[in-house]
Design a protein around this nucleic acid. Sequence first.
DNA 1: GATTCGCAGTGAGATGCTGA
DNA 2: TCAGCATCTCACTGCGAATC
Length: 377
Amino acid sequence: MSKKGENIYKRKDGRWEGRYIKGRNKSGSIKYGYVYAKKYNEVKTKLIVVKAELIGSGNKEYKEELLKGWCDFWLENEVKNVVKSSTYAQYHWLCNNYIVPFFENSYLHNITEDKIQTFIITLEKRKLASGTIRNIFALLRKMLIAAENNQLVLGSPYKKIRLPHKKNNSIIALSRTDQRKLEAIAFNERGCSPIILSLYLGLRIGEISGLKWSDIDFNKEVVYIKRTVSRVKTSFETESKTNIIISTPKTEQSCRVVPLSNKILYYLLSKRKHSESEYVVTCKNNLAEPRVIRYRFKSSIKKAGISDTHFHILRHTFATRCIEMGTDITSLSKLLGHTSVKMTLDIYTDSMLESRKEVVQRLDQLMFDEFKNVSVR
DNA sequence: GATTCGCAGTGAGATGCTGA
DNA sequence: TCAGCATCTCACTGCGAATC
């Protein structure tokens, strides 16, 4: 029930007791405050409230708060109701697995640049990817800024930290041969294939998972992307639990209208005839969650004899084929649901190498003709 | 065998910041 | 002013174990 470091314990008389640092006496030992309740969760809530009151009152002694305590308070009061549940779950995980264990016995006002730098080096030694280390540091800094705003931290020890360099991974798409092999298997699926939807509409896995037949306007020949599905950790108290969350797409721009080609329209119409579910891609007549789609994808690429890859490659393949066919970048950006054209350019610049070569060849031809003319003259 | 779940970690995309 | 980099938010991946 109670977690290590929370200072919440079940008493022999059946009640739950929670302790918090109220201050220190002259000898430096901690003075505790106490709260009681019949249930664990009630004690936890009472502790949060009393800590919030202490911070609000500007209690000088309370400044000797351990990072662990501040972390719990901050997550519960300043993060939980502000960000999406998936982000909260992510923060919770990063805090409890990296930040809190390292700074477990550190007081907020004793956290120095050196200590944070050592923390980063420790993470590097654990062979974590640079992106992950940057994510962990970004979270720690955010937490420290919040503590700074509450006068719990002196100075800004997070300002001059050296972080590992970011890696740039190039985008990989399926070759035309592999795409054909995969399509052959996907078109033979009994239900509507998520592979076809991603290859021909450029949809993300969560968008496919949440796609309903009512989102498709067969008369206007368009599909409306309105929701995304993901599995998120929702319980952090006792045994951990995850749930399917249906929410709006990643950004406002991700809510979009994607036109349907004649072939895809025909494909969808034929699949709708045999569907008994409100969802386009199904598992036991309900929506197929992203994990199920990924699981099926893995088995399809195995059957197709394609080397192991991830589902998102289908979206990259869609974008790459569009570029190869000369689609303008603004239209592609809209189709993919990117916020800006710059974003699309940043991601798919490498895919445009062939088009750029073509342009240079054309220029070369032009120059050669000019050169010939000059020589003749 | 198919599917679900939890854990541990990585990557994508949007937005903010900075310095040339 | 604006490109490029940093930061922030959120989604996705791989794997093993459990369950259906």
